[in-house]
C-alpha cells in the first residue's frame, strides 16, 4: 500500500448478526488491522439508507463500507438482498454525482469470518490511499464520465 501519509476515514455500517459479530471475532482473535474504520451498528444491512452513505461523504468520510450476512444467511431472511439492490443503484448515483463508486463497498461477512474483516478493512484502506482524499465536487465543476463496471 502506498504510504503517502494519507489516512482515509471509513464509516462502516455492520449488521448486528453477521458482520458486527465478525468484527467482534476479529477482536477476540486479536487480528490486528488498520484503525481507519468507525463501525456503526445496524440491525440489518437492509437498514442502510442510501442517505446514510451520502451523509457520511458530506461530513468528511473518504469511504463507506457496508457489511451484511452472506446471501441466503440474512437473520431477517432477505434484508441483505434489499441492501444489494440499493447498493447497485447508489453506486450509479454516486458516479453521476462525480464520486468514485469504489469509495463505497458492500461485503458479505459472516459471524465466523473475523479474518475477512481484517482483509477487507486493510484492502479498502490501501485502495482509498491510492484514490486519495474524498473531495466534494463543486456544483459547477465539469464532471468526468465515470464508468460503473458492476
Amino acid at each position: 500500500m502506498p504510504d503517502n501519509g494519507f489516512e482515509p476515514k471509513i464509516v462502516a455500517f455492520f449488521c448486528n448478526w453477521c458482520t458486527y459479530l465478525a468484527a467482534d471475532l476479529a477482536g477476540t482473535s486479536r487480528l490486528k488491522h488498520a484503525p481507519n474504520t468507525r463501525v456503526i451498528r445496524v440491525m440489518c444491512s437492509g437498514r442502510v439508507d442510501p442517505q446514510f452513505v451520502l451523509d457520511a461523504f458530506a461530513h468528511g468520510a473518504d469511504g463507506v463500507l457496508i457489511g451484511g450476512c452472506h446471501p441466503g444467511d440474512c437473520h431477517y431472511q432477505e434484508g441483505n438482498y434489499k441492501a444489494l439492490r440499493r447498493f447497485h443503484l447508489l453506486r450509479r448515483y454516486l458516479a453521476d454525482m462525480g464520486i468514485e463508486p469504489e469509495r463505497v463497498r458492500l461485503e458479505w461477512i459472516s459471524a465466523s469470518e473475523g479474518d475477512k474483516v481484517r482483509a477487507v478493512v486493510d484492502d479498502m484502506v490501501a485502495k482509498l490511499r491510492e484514490l486519495g482524499p474524498f473531495r466534494q465536487p463543486a456544483a459547477d465543476e465539469p464532471r468526468e464520465k465515470v464508468e460503473v463496471t458492476s
Binding site: V42, M43, C44, G46, R47, D49, D55, H75, G79, K82
Partner: peptide, 25 residues
C-alpha cells in the same frame, strides 16, 4: 426490527425505535 422498510420508505414516514434516522445521522 430489521429496519429494511425504514430505509426504503420514500417519504421517511417509518421510524425504527433505537435506530431512528436522526440517531444514525
Amino acid at each position: 426490527g430489521c429496519g429494511t422498510c425504514v430505509a426504503a420508505c420514500p417519504s421517511g414516514s417509518i421510524v425504527q425505535n433505537l435506530f431512528e434516522d436522526d440517531q444514525i445521522f
